[in-house]
């Protein structure tokens, strides 16, 4: 039984949590505001920024004109969607098989797959870098798609596996009794039930790939640099750059913020490998 809670308690809770929540969100809100300022206004005192200066869209245009922003945006899209799609193609059959035709070693295989995720990327930085150099994969989108696919494959398999596990096996058996072939079983019975789980897997994986900042920084230069690497170029800027950095940042994080809000719940499952549900 939930107890009746007075509106005063409610209001007090709201005030405390709201204030702290606002503080957490404030840096994002602040760069959103700065992205609509001129460079000169962006470095003024906080109150002057808010109330004593005009608003402009110039920074967004400057960022695009000066550095071909949308090329990097496109790289991020291609790399994150590409690695997610390839990963899904490889992971779906594996997760399906392990969930519905479990064998003696299934658990071990799953745990082993997870263990590959525990390998610190810096431990294999040198060989991957040299292999990429020798095969001409440095600073290419295809190279990053390969690395990010392999890096996130264990997470995709695990998430799909836990979702598939929740589909009752009796339904599949019934379909089999009715003479459905393996192909039909997957296409017409399993897929419709698995779509919500696959959707959240896709969402989480795009978020992880979009924000990945080890391989993208070390394996790209100018051509294939996604937004993570492009934004990093602001670490040694020339002249005033707060408004430009804000504009570039806001455009870089907006798509993922929106996706993230939709996938809060699935995030927990995906990031803890089902250890917390």
């Amino acid at each position: 039984m939930a107890r009746a809670v007075s509106n005063r308690t409610r209001a007090l809770n709201t005030a405390v949590a709201g204030t702290l929540g606002f503080l957490m969100f404030f840096p994002i809100l602040w760069i959103f505001i700065l992205s609509f300022k001129t460079e000169e206004d962006a470095i003024r005192a906080p109150l002057e920024v808010l109330f004593g200066s005009g608003w402009t869209l110039d920074s967004f245009f400057t960022v695009q004109e000066r550095s071909d922003y949308f090329k990097h945006f496109a790289n991020s899209v291609i790399i994150s969607l590409g690695s997610t799609f390839v990963g899904l193609l490889i992971a779906i059959p594996a997760a399906w098989a392990m969930a519905f035709v479990p064998a003696r070693h299934t658990k071990n295989v799953l745990m082993w797959m997870l263990s590959t995720k525990m390998l610190p990327p810096v431990g294999v930085l040198v060989p991957i870098y040299l292999i990429f150099r020798d095969y001409g994969l440095l600073d290419t989108r295809i190279g990053l798609v390969i690395v990010l696919t392999l890096m996130n494959l264990p997470i995709i398999i695990w998430m799909l596996y836990t979702y598939f596990k929740e589909i009752p096996g009796e339904i599949l058996e019934a379909a089999r009794m009715d003479g459905a072939s393996l192909r039909e079983e997957i296409l017409h019975v399993l897929t419709p039930m698995a779509i919500p789980g696959m959707a959240s897997t896709v969402l989480l994986n795009i978020i992880l790939a979009w924000n990945e900042a080890f391989w993208t920084l070390n394996l790209t230069a100018a051509n294939a640099a996604p937004l993570t690497a492009f934004i990093a170029s602001y670490s040694s800027p020339e002249g005033l750059f707060y408004a430009k950095l804000s504009a570039a940042s806001i455009m870089a994080i907006a798509p993922i913020l929106i996706m993230g809000w939709f996938s809060q719940r699935q995030l927990v499952r995906g990031l803890t490998f089902g250890a917390v549900k």
């Binding site: 969100f25 840096p27 900042a213 690497a229 940042s249 870089a252 913020l257 993230g260």
Partner: peptide
């Protein structure tokens, strides 16, 4: 929200 902001940003 901060969790979804890329590390470099």
């Amino acid at each position: 929200a901060p969790f979804f902001v890329m590390p470099t940003v």
